[in-house]
Amino acid sequence: MMKSILRYLTFFPANLVFVLLAYLLSPVLAALSLATGPKLPGFLRWFSTTDADLDGGITQNLMGYKAGLKGWRLWWQRTCWICRNPAHGWQSEVLGMPAAGSVIVRQVVSDTPKNQWYVMEAARGVRFFCWKRDQPLFGGYYLKIWLGWVNKSYDGRNHHYAFQIGPKRRK
């Protein structure tokens, strides 16, 4: 398990650079997408999600994402999508762990507060982890924390590297 934590910490600086780049480049990438369509070309897909294009908020029925937008509104919506999911392609394609043949070898889940711990093993025997926690705050808000590699493979190919810490509102 210590190797998994060391691997995670080793990847952290590169991940941080790509996440910051995603935030900084999001207006330019969204503008490019107005000419190329909702899928970014080539390696620029590292700045988008692997399981959805830049209009993923619409297909996933997320509040605030609307179909049929054009021009500035579409640009803004795609900019927001990139910022909502910064560098997911990078986190999956480059830093991710292969999903094929991977298994969960340990799982601990509690509901109060919501806390999840997974230890997984790739087909080649490499172990990796995922820790998710919803830490209650106040006024219907909680702090969402995801560290490790996501226990589900969203694209069917990789468990993407996760570093998410941020406030969320309960529905």
Rank of each mutant, 00 (worst) to 15 (best):
H88W: 12
I58D: 05
V105A: 07
I58G: 04
W72I: 15
A31G: 09
R124E: 15
L21V: 01
G96A: 04
A52K: 14
V109D: 08
A99W: 11
G68N: 03
W72L: 15
G56T: 07
A22G: 02
K66R: 13
V109F: 08
A123C: 08
Y23A: 02
V109L: 09
P38H: 12
R78M: 13
R45F: 08
A122I: 07
K66I: 12
F47I: 08
D55A: 12
L69P: 01
R78A: 00
L44H: 05
Q116M: 15
S48R: 05
G101Y: 01
W90R: 05
R124Y: 12
A30K: 01
V103R: 12
K39A: 15
G96V: 00
F47C: 01
G64N: 01
G101C: 09
E121H: 02
I104V: 14
S26P: 01
S102D: 11
P38N: 12
S26E: 04
L95P: 00
W90V: 06
L34H: 02
M120L: 15
T50Y: 10
G56P: 04
K39M: 15
P13M: 05
L21G: 02
P41K: 11
D55T: 10
Y23T: 05
K70N: 11
S92F: 03
E93W: 10
L44T: 06
N15C: 14
L44K: 04
R124A: 14
I58F: 11
D53P: 05
K66E: 15
V94I: 14
W117Y: 11
W76P: 02
Y65K: 00
V105F: 02
S110I: 15
S92P: 01
D55M: 11
W76A: 14
N85P: 02
Y118L: 10
L24Y: 08
S48F: 04
T10D: 13
E121G: 06
E121F: 10
L9G: 03
D51V: 02
P13R: 03
E93Q: 11
T79Q: 11
A123H: 13
G37H: 07
L16G: 12
L20Y: 04
M97E: 01
Q116P: 00
I58R: 05
C80A: 10
F43D: 06
L24I: 13
N85V: 10
T79S: 09
K70F: 13
M97A: 00
G125V: 07
R73Y: 09
L69C: 04
K114W: 11
D53T: 03
S33L: 09
Y23S: 02
A35S: 09
Q60Y: 11
W90K: 03
S33C: 08
Y8N: 03
Q91V: 04
N115I: 08
V17Q: 10
Y23G: 00
I82T: 03
V109C: 10
V17R: 06
S102K: 02
S26M: 08
L29N: 00
